Amino acid sequence: MSTDRLPPAAPNPQERRHPAVRAFVVLLVAEAVFMIGLSAWFLFELVSATPTSFTSALAIFVILLIATAFVTALAIGAVRGRTWIRGGAVTWQLVQIAVAVGAFQGVFAQPAIGWCLLIPSIAVLGLLFTPAVAAVTRREV
Protein backbone atom coordinates (compact mmCIF):
# COMPACT_ATOMS: atom_id res chain seq x y z
CA MET A 1 0.00 0.00 0.00
CA SER A 2 1.30 3.43 -0.92
CA THR A 3 1.99 5.94 1.83
CA ASP A 4 0.27 8.61 -0.30
CA ARG A 5 -3.11 7.17 0.62
CA LEU A 6 -2.63 6.72 4.35
CA PRO A 7 -4.91 8.85 6.53
CA PRO A 8 -3.20 11.59 8.52
CA ALA A 9 -1.95 10.53 11.91
CA ALA A 10 -4.19 11.32 14.84
CA PRO A 11 -2.97 14.10 17.12
CA ASN A 12 -0.94 13.04 20.11
CA PRO A 13 -3.29 12.56 23.11
CA GLN A 14 -0.95 14.76 25.17
CA GLU A 15 -1.47 17.60 22.69
CA ARG A 16 -5.26 17.33 23.07
CA ARG A 17 -4.91 17.82 26.86
CA HIS A 18 -2.86 20.98 26.57
CA PRO A 19 -4.51 23.96 28.37
CA ALA A 20 -4.61 26.01 25.15
CA VAL A 21 -6.44 23.20 23.34
CA ARG A 22 -8.88 22.85 26.22
CA ALA A 23 -9.54 26.61 26.27
CA PHE A 24 -10.07 26.57 22.49
CA VAL A 25 -12.60 23.73 22.75
CA VAL A 26 -14.38 25.31 25.72
CA LEU A 27 -14.75 28.63 23.90
CA LEU A 28 -16.15 26.96 20.77
CA VAL A 29 -18.59 24.91 22.85
CA ALA A 30 -19.65 28.06 24.74
CA GLU A 31 -20.29 29.84 21.44
CA ALA A 32 -22.39 26.89 20.25
CA VAL A 33 -24.41 26.81 23.48
CA PHE A 34 -24.96 30.57 23.22
CA MET A 35 -26.18 30.23 19.62
CA ILE A 36 -28.56 27.42 20.59
CA GLY A 37 -29.96 29.60 23.38
CA LEU A 38 -30.25 32.58 21.04
CA SER A 39 -32.14 30.43 18.52
CA ALA A 40 -34.54 29.23 21.23
CA TRP A 41 -35.10 32.79 22.45
CA PHE A 42 -35.70 34.05 18.90
CA LEU A 43 -38.22 31.24 18.25
CA PHE A 44 -40.03 32.12 21.47
CA GLU A 45 -40.16 35.77 20.46
CA LEU A 46 -41.31 34.82 16.96
CA VAL A 47 -44.34 32.91 18.24
CA SER A 48 -45.18 35.04 21.28
CA ALA A 49 -44.82 38.55 19.82
CA THR A 50 -46.13 39.98 16.60
CA PRO A 51 -43.23 41.03 14.37
CA THR A 52 -43.57 44.01 12.07
CA SER A 53 -42.75 41.74 9.15
CA PHE A 54 -43.30 38.05 9.74
CA THR A 55 -41.51 37.15 6.50
CA SER A 56 -38.38 39.07 7.49
CA ALA A 57 -38.45 37.63 11.01
CA LEU A 58 -38.76 34.12 9.58
CA ALA A 59 -35.85 34.73 7.18
CA ILE A 60 -33.67 35.97 10.04
CA PHE A 61 -34.64 32.90 12.06
CA VAL A 62 -33.62 30.57 9.21
CA ILE A 63 -30.25 32.35 8.92
CA LEU A 64 -29.84 32.05 12.69
CA LEU A 65 -30.55 28.31 12.51
CA ILE A 66 -27.96 27.86 9.76
CA ALA A 67 -25.36 29.76 11.80
CA THR A 68 -26.26 27.72 14.88
CA ALA A 69 -25.81 24.47 12.96
CA PHE A 70 -22.44 25.69 11.66
CA VAL A 71 -21.10 26.68 15.08
CA THR A 72 -22.46 23.51 16.68
CA ALA A 73 -20.71 21.39 14.02
CA LEU A 74 -17.48 23.29 14.75
CA ALA A 75 -17.85 22.68 18.48
CA ILE A 76 -18.52 18.96 17.98
CA GLY A 77 -15.55 18.75 15.63
CA ALA A 78 -13.37 20.51 18.19
CA VAL A 79 -14.43 18.12 20.94
CA ARG A 80 -13.59 15.18 18.65
CA GLY A 81 -10.26 16.70 17.63
CA ARG A 82 -11.04 17.03 13.91
CA THR A 83 -8.62 18.94 11.70
CA TRP A 84 -11.27 20.41 9.38
CA ILE A 85 -12.50 22.86 12.03
CA ARG A 86 -9.58 25.28 11.66
CA GLY A 87 -10.89 27.18 8.62
CA GLY A 88 -14.45 27.22 9.92
CA ALA A 89 -13.34 28.49 13.31
CA VAL A 90 -11.40 31.35 11.70
CA THR A 91 -14.39 32.20 9.50
CA TRP A 92 -16.82 32.22 12.42
CA GLN A 93 -14.56 34.40 14.56
CA LEU A 94 -14.24 36.94 11.73
CA VAL A 95 -18.03 37.02 11.36
CA GLN A 96 -18.38 37.58 15.10
CA ILE A 97 -15.81 40.38 14.98
CA ALA A 98 -17.76 42.05 12.16
CA VAL A 99 -20.97 41.84 14.21
CA ALA A 100 -19.12 43.17 17.27
CA VAL A 101 -17.82 46.17 15.32
CA GLY A 102 -21.39 46.84 14.19
CA ALA A 103 -22.57 46.66 17.81
CA PHE A 104 -20.13 49.43 18.79
CA GLN A 105 -21.48 52.00 16.34
CA GLY A 106 -24.68 53.49 15.03
CA VAL A 107 -27.86 54.87 16.54
CA PHE A 108 -28.67 51.62 18.35
CA ALA A 109 -25.12 50.87 19.51
CA GLN A 110 -24.77 48.22 22.21
CA PRO A 111 -21.14 48.25 23.38
CA ALA A 112 -21.76 45.52 25.98
CA ILE A 113 -22.86 43.12 23.24
CA GLY A 114 -19.90 44.19 21.13
CA TRP A 115 -17.43 43.35 23.92
CA CYS A 116 -19.15 40.01 24.62
CA LEU A 117 -18.61 39.07 20.97
CA LEU A 118 -15.19 40.63 20.45
CA ILE A 119 -13.30 39.22 23.45
CA PRO A 120 -14.03 35.51 22.83
CA SER A 121 -13.41 35.93 19.09
CA ILE A 122 -9.97 37.43 19.65
CA ALA A 123 -9.22 34.72 22.23
CA VAL A 124 -10.17 31.90 19.82
CA LEU A 125 -8.17 33.49 16.98
CA GLY A 126 -5.18 33.84 19.27
CA LEU A 127 -5.49 30.25 20.48
CA LEU A 128 -5.70 28.99 16.90
CA PHE A 129 -2.14 30.18 16.33
CA THR A 130 -0.63 28.67 19.47
CA PRO A 131 1.61 25.67 18.75
CA ALA A 132 -0.59 23.20 20.67
CA VAL A 133 -3.85 24.13 18.94
CA ALA A 134 -2.13 24.40 15.57
CA ALA A 135 -0.74 20.87 16.03
CA VAL A 136 -4.18 19.45 16.84
CA THR A 137 -5.97 21.28 14.01
CA ARG A 138 -3.28 20.87 11.37
CA ARG A 139 -3.60 18.24 8.70
CA GLU A 140 -0.29 16.67 7.81
CA VAL A 141 -0.30 15.71 4.13
Score class of each variant (00 low, 15 high):
Q110L: 09
A30L: 07
E140C: 03
V25L: 01
W41P: 04
L38T: 07
P19K: 03
R22C: 03
Q110A: 14
I85W: 02
F70M: 06
A123W: 05
M1V: 12
G114N: 12
N12R: 10
T68R: 10
N12I: 03
V133Q: 11
L38M: 11
P131Q: 13
P7L: 13
V29I: 08
R16L: 11
V133T: 06
S121F: 11
A89F: 05
A78K: 05
L125Y: 02
L27W: 07
M1S: 13
L65I: 08
S56I: 04
V101Q: 04
V71C: 04
R17P: 03
W84I: 08
V90M: 10
S48Q: 02
V33G: 12
W115V: 14
V95C: 03
I119N: 02
M35R: 13
R5C: 03
L74D: 00
A9Q: 01
T130K: 12
L38D: 02
V136G: 10
L6D: 03
A40C: 07
F61C: 06
R82A: 12
G126N: 06
R82G: 02
L58F: 03
I85D: 08
A73N: 04
L27K: 12
G81Y: 14
V47W: 10
I122P: 07
V21M: 10
V33H: 13
P7R: 09
L28C: 03
A100L: 09
A98P: 01
P131L: 13
T52R: 14
A30W: 02
L118N: 04
F42K: 15
F129M: 06
A100G: 15
D4Q: 13
T72M: 02
W115K: 00
I60N: 06
A40E: 13
F44M: 14
G126T: 05
I122S: 02
S53T: 09
Q14M: 09
L125Q: 01
L28W: 07
S121W: 07
L6K: 15
